[in-house]
Nucleic acid binder design. Structure first.
Lengths: 116, 116
DNA sequence: CGGCAAGATTGATGAATGTCGATATCTGAA
DNA sequence: TTCAGATATCGACATTCATCAATCTTGCCG
């Protein structure tokens, strides 16, 4: 195990790095990855963009199916993923379901990057 | 080469914009999704976190295999994805390969979110 | 030269994902 | 109540992905 820099293995009680947490925990990484997974699809990014620019800040599924050139079940599936990631919110009025950006969600996601 | 039609109706304040660009293009969405795909894995997020906090801002593969509990080929594979996404840079010195954060890459990625 | 260590690449495999067609659920109107 | 439209859910399929074992490439040093 030749290491280029002599790294003392696991003798904690060290003087010089008191809270040297080496990285975010596996659980925290898993949680953050869920949000980025929701953003890791072109059609979902376009959905966010369309909803953000939509009149009134909200759009229903029928307005989203055509510009993406996707079937209605597929759009509904993507919207569900975005809602579960905390990026979109859903409000049903009558027969229609209106989706809108969760306030501050984009800023919080950017914070997940900065605090890596 | 400059097209005279490249003026966009940006500052026409009160008048409505009839040709409202509905969203980012499919190609742009695809390009941005590549970056978020690189972030959509817990182990890659931990890799970024470890490299960011590493002494000197860089770490070699041998330092990354153990904390992630992954095999060396798998770590190498993840690092390649992060390099191709423009988040990490690779510098080979001797037998060792040192990875470090690309300056400003995290901020640029946050900008991809804000400009949706 | 030969051997060795670090890291990258290849091939294979099981799991996760995006998409669609068919169907179910729910709501307003006749 | 019955019908029609909007949306959600289910089942299936093809593709992508994460991981590992084995192998290859490269650079160091005896």
């Amino acid at each position: 195990m030749s290491s280029p820099q002599t790294l003392e293995p696991a003798v904690d009680a060290d003087c010089c790095a008191p809270t040297q947490k080496p990285a975010i925990s596996a659980g925290e990484a898993h949680h953050r990855a869920l949000v980025f997974k929701a953003l890791a699809d072109p059609n979902r990014l376009r959905l966010l963009s369309i909803v953000k620019r939509a009149d009134g800040g909200e759009a229903c599924v029928c307005d989203l199916t055509e510009p993406l050139d996707l079937g209605q079940p597929t759009v509904s599936h993507h919207l569900k993923i975005l809602v579960e990631a905390g990026l979109l919110s859903r409000e049903k009025r009558g027969t229609w379901a209106y989706y809108s950006l969760v306030p501050g969600a984009v800023e919080r996601t950017a914070g997940l990057l900065a605090s890596l």
